[in-house]
Design a protein around this nucleic acid. Structure first.
Lengths: 138, 138
DNA sequence: ATACTGGGTTACCTTATGGATACCAAAGGC
DNA sequence: GCCTTTGGTATCCATAAGGTAACCCAGTAT
């Protein structure tokens, strides 16, 4: 499998295909949130922490390093004290914004449907627990 | 926060907003793969295993139950022996196909760029390890 | 009688993820 | 001398995710 050619095209269903790893990365919960937060422009470490909220510095660092490694954002250190580090999407990273936005909008507008479905399902399950003894004792 | 209203709209950046959970689910690695595999029509359990590949029955069951609970697919049991169970996307599940397809296409066509970036990054890291002793012993 | 089938379940164990906490460096202010 | 600030690291620990292997059911085929 030639991963050096610039026009390599993958298949996410093949577990040995690197695009599956890529898909895993861009499907990662933290990564997707960070990318979307950076949509409007560069942010500092502490600003990211506040915007994405709750994430611990360790986790945020891991996510940022991974995204930097994958060429989706750049890390710029300013020689100041106290230090200042800006994170900014690369052009490649920016191309992810459209697909992620679609997914996000789906999520935000279909919450109710999914939560309602969960309630239904759980009620059905609760009822099933009470069903007559069709259930052989293991 | 009213999650009963049919037109509730969420915000994925709010860690307390249920849409964040939704986003986590539809960003889940296995879930996204399963949904895409079901794009072409209903499949049986064993067909799903073969197509998504490598996933163990336990994990596949978990993923399918979660997706069923969230109303993204239906599970139909045929009263046969040996049993036959079909999984099929609901209309709601089908609305996810478009956004997921975009993401998948992004992944499949940007693998090379990401892998190249990783190579660069790792080489820079390797070089950094050899840098002069600027590095205070902990 | 036994084996085979499909769609699981269960128990057990390992690994990955992520949270809490503490700490550090370097320059400037008090 | 000590505190403050920012952008992290280091360490430890708890939970979650996921893999392995064995087993189950019920009918049909051998």
């Amino acid at each position: 499998m030639d991963t050096k050619g610039a026009s390599f095209i993958g298949n996410v269903m093949d577990p040995d295909c690197p695009s599956r790893m890529v898909f895993a990365r861009i499907g990662d919960k933290w990564a997707t949130l960070v990318i979307q937060v950076l949509a409007e422009g560069p942010l500092r470490f502490s600003e990211l922490r506040q915007t994405v909220h709750v994430v611990t510095p360790k986790v945020l660092t891991q996510v940022l390093r991974a995204l930097e490694r994958d060429g989706l954002l750049t890390r710029t250190v300013f020689a100041q004290v106290p230090p200042r580090v800006d994170y900014e999407l690369t052009p490649l990273g920016r191309t992810l914004l459209e697909p992620l936005k679609a997914l996000r909008e789906w999520a935000e507008s279909n919450v109710s449907a999914m939560l309602a479905s969960r309630d239904d399902y759980d009620e059905r399950e609760d009822a099933a627990i009470l069903r007559p003894p069709g259930h052989p004792g293991r």
